[in-house]
Design a protein around this nucleic acid. Structure first.
Lengths: 211, 211
DNA sequence: ATATCAATCGCATGAATATGCAGTTTTCCA
DNA sequence: TGGAAAACTGCATATTCATGCGATTGATAT
């Protein structure tokens, strides 16, 4: 049995969802809410397995609502059901803890399937949403791979130290080497990354996924 | 009609897939290969819409094969079909251009559905793969949101300049302000980010998604 | 209307960095 | 066993940074 709650401001839609889902075997609809604030206040009483969450809501958005809900019940699964399918909303919702994302014209059968899938550890997404997630993934994390440059272990340690705010001296102390050796590594790092300053090195290295 | 090719080293599996997919309406199986090299050499002749790609292959891996295939035919869609479901393989495959990822015990009906979905612009993923992708997404990109600290526009410009390797003087020139004003902004940036060096500031800012 | 914030500019100085040149040791593979 | 790669050390110095203190201006908010 999957316990769910619904957060959706438009009453006809909310009622429709409630009727549909209440009538479904294996799903128990604990409650439905028109906004996040009400849902959050009852969250610990409802203890849903899955929260069916709209994005465009009066007051707190579904994005923020997702974040807050995960704070209160980290084990609950948020499944976004939204008309918005732009990168920014998808990105934000997933980063805030949503585990699935469906567009609103999802057929009832698929919705039911998705709720069960979400509860069982999947991440149901509408086809075009999934593609967008994959593309976002690639776009944001590109360069993390195939970076033609490779830093040695020591170089990585040194650079990581700098990016943590350490000076040459404190890096040297931490690695039990002399300051001149730190300098030596830095030179090599600069050559490899083709830069001439710490900031540029740190920036490039992070963007390439080297540190 | 969806044109596909199969890349899978184990012949029984490859033959099984070929038989299954050849018999499916709407799918035309152009060829099947035991390794990426052969597939790549025939890619322009086959012109598949979807490449069904194994990961663990003799010679070039499916990951590298995906990258090469996308170089030759950028519009082709790669659908990974692998026994591996670890973060690293998923991550690499998606970054190299795969648009879908299924585990090998996927039932035939789902596989067929996935091929069509992939061809139509979706990104079919097995349930647990999808969840892993979402979690990876969050893990790698977390902090890009909710960063309690906010840099002003000017501060962002200054910090971006530094991360690009510019000195105070060149940043000042670029922004038509004096070096002392650059210093002023840097101070404020350091305070907000609670750091005392460029490297730490750049590092924190990037990880928080501020620049 | 006054307070707050962002942005601008200036000066000063000890501390840290970038980079040139010149070596030795360790490790690991062919 | 010889040779490349990585790691290590040293010294010198012009340049750049980090941060102390002080001041003015415009805009926005209360």
């Amino acid at each position: 049995m999957t316990r769910i709650v619904i957060v959706e401001d438009k009453k006809p839609i909310r009622d429709g969802l409630r009727v549909l889902l209440s009538a479904t075997d294996g799903i128990e609809c604990m409650a439905d809410y028109g906004n996040c604030e009400d849902m959050l206040s009852q969250l610990e009483a409802d203890r849903p397995d899955v929260i069916l969450m709209d994005i465009g809501l009066p007051g707190m958005s579904g994005i923020a609502g997702t974040r807050e809900a995960k704070k209160i019940l980290p084990d609950t699964t948020v499944l976004v059901l939204s008309v918005y399918d732009d990168d920014e909303n998808i990105f934000q919702a997933l980063c805030m803890g949503a585990s699935g994302y469906l567009v609103k014209n999802t057929p009832p059968a698929r919705l039911i399937e998705a709720i069960k899938e979400a509860h069982e550890g999947g991440s149901p997404m509408s086809a075009n949403i999934a593609r967008k997630v994959v593309n976002l993934f690639r776009k944001k994390l590109a360069g993390s791979v195939e970076s033609d440059v490779h830093l040695t272990e020591r170089e990585t340690e040194v650079l990581a130290g700098l990016s943590d705010g350490h000076s040459y001296i404190s890096v040297a102390d931490a690695l039990f080497i002399s300051v001149d050796t730190v300098r030596y590594h830095i030179r090599n790092i600069y050559q490899k990354l083709e830069v001439h300053s710490q900031s540029a090195a740190v920036s490039k290295a992070i963007r390439k996924g080297l540190i």
